[in-house]
Design a protein around this nucleic acid. Structure first.
Lengths: 236, 236
DNA sequence: TCTCGTTTGTGAGCGGTGCTCTCGCTTGGT
DNA sequence: ACCAAGCGAGAGCACCGCTCACAAACGAGA
């Protein structure tokens, strides 16, 4: 244990760097929450932190890099939130846990709309998500896979029908995502994963205005149907 | 018929105005398609059109107003595309028409990604969609309702189950959207509508990268399942 | 046909942005 | 104790949205 705090920075200098970096991200997140990503301004962040704008470039080489950092943090916050909901439902049925995780994702999105828009809305300018975001981005998906796997191992699943033309792709996805699950299930799971974000996005971005009113109940039912489609049943 | 061309402008002046307005929108759409909404610049549009930037404000009072115009156009282009697909499948079964309409929406989105992002991605800055966009925005949804209605009137539908707690909301939505359909159907329909855009968005915004490869087949199957959930069956 | 008010285009300008570069100060490790 | 590396400051570049005062072009009514 001689290198106990090796991840804690070696010198005071490095420590300061981490602190300033965090302060920049915090202030940026503050502005993001208020005005949205488009109005996030490096100069304003620097101003608020009492430094000159050019100093900020010592920490983030460009505005896009700051945004990328915020994106990763947002993915992780969303994942964290979903995982917490998952832990809290340890005893429940898979279907109940599925709904709880989906509701946690929705709650996080409603509570942090601009951050959600940053990750699941249209990607900024000519921006394509760097590889670094991938692990953070997959946390909710992995959770849904885990819930399904748990149900499969405990009671088995109702397998959806799968057209022949989709079978090769289904098997490819299965091999990559969850080789222990049936391809029919994995395919439906991937679709449900995308559809979940359709439901959240429509509510968040105002598409449900004047259409759906009791959105919590509606959402709960819709994601329950998604779970049902994947093969989870409330009883088990 | 004395006022046959009343919508055609009275003088040459008014004619010029709509021509310039159209030219601005066209050039803006060009830039939008290349760089995305965030980089759309009034000055660049004006420059390309050989006018000075301030002149452009005679036609659009602000950048947001230009964007709003583009948004409405995009909704209409998407709606047009979907309606064309609907017309082309006049003889087919409702389920087939459903899939065709969804595929048309997807095709349009893939062909016009930045315009799609403009309407179904995160709304720009502090932007909330003006009332003027509503009719254009609902065209695809109305199409899906129409297909479902046709199926209902011809053969009836398999009614999904509806939990008691959702019944009031389901009946409210039904009264507003399609009083002639069963509330169970309307509820599932609204969810399917949102889920459709989850599927399109995930593909378009790169969430399916390294996950789904044969996206056309996958999409066709997923929206087929949506149709099935609403109660449409391929056979009928 | 002339005229006068409206419409349109011009150019300067304001305050803001992302980003670069050079300059000195501070400081941590040798 | 020194020196290179890290860091902040400030000026500056090119761009942005938007405003304003002004001049030219225009068309409808006298």
């Amino acid at each position: 244990m001689s290198s106990a705090d090796d991840n804690t920075p070696r010198g005071a200098r490095a420590r300061a760097r981490i602190e300033v970096t965090a302060a920049i991200k915090d202030e940026a997140r503050r502005q993001l929450a208020i005005d949205g990503a488009a109005k996030l301004s490096l100069r304003a962040v620097a101003r608020e932190l009492g430094m000159v704008s050019s100093a900020l470039y010592r920490y983030f080489p460009s505005r896009d890099d700051l945004l990328t950092a915020l994106i990763i943090d947002a993915y992780n916050a969303l994942g964290e939130s979903a995982e917490a909901a998952h832990r809290k439902t340890a005893g429940a049925t898979p279907a109940q846990r599925w709904v709880a995780v989906c509701e946690a994702a929705r709650d996080w999105a409603l509570g942090n709309p601009h951050e959600y828009a940053l990750i699941y809305g249209s990607p900024v300018p000519g921006y394509s998500a760097p590889q670094a975001t991938v692990p953070a981005a997959s946390r909710v998906g992995l959770l849904l896979i885990g819930i399904t796997r748990e149900a499969y191992q405990r009671h088995g699943l109702a397998k959806p029908r799968l057209p022949a033309e989709l079978r090769p792709e289904a098997e490819r996805m299965t091999a990559e995502l969850a080789p222990d699950l049936p391809p029919e299930t994995v395919t439906t799971l991937v679709a449900a994963w995308a559809q979940l974000y359709g439901l959240i996005g429509f509510e968040l971005f105002g598409q449900f205005n004047r259409v759906v009113e009791d959105r919590t109940t509606f959402f709960r039912h819709a994601v329950g149907q998604l779970a049902h489609g994947v093969g989870l049943v409330y009883g088990e």
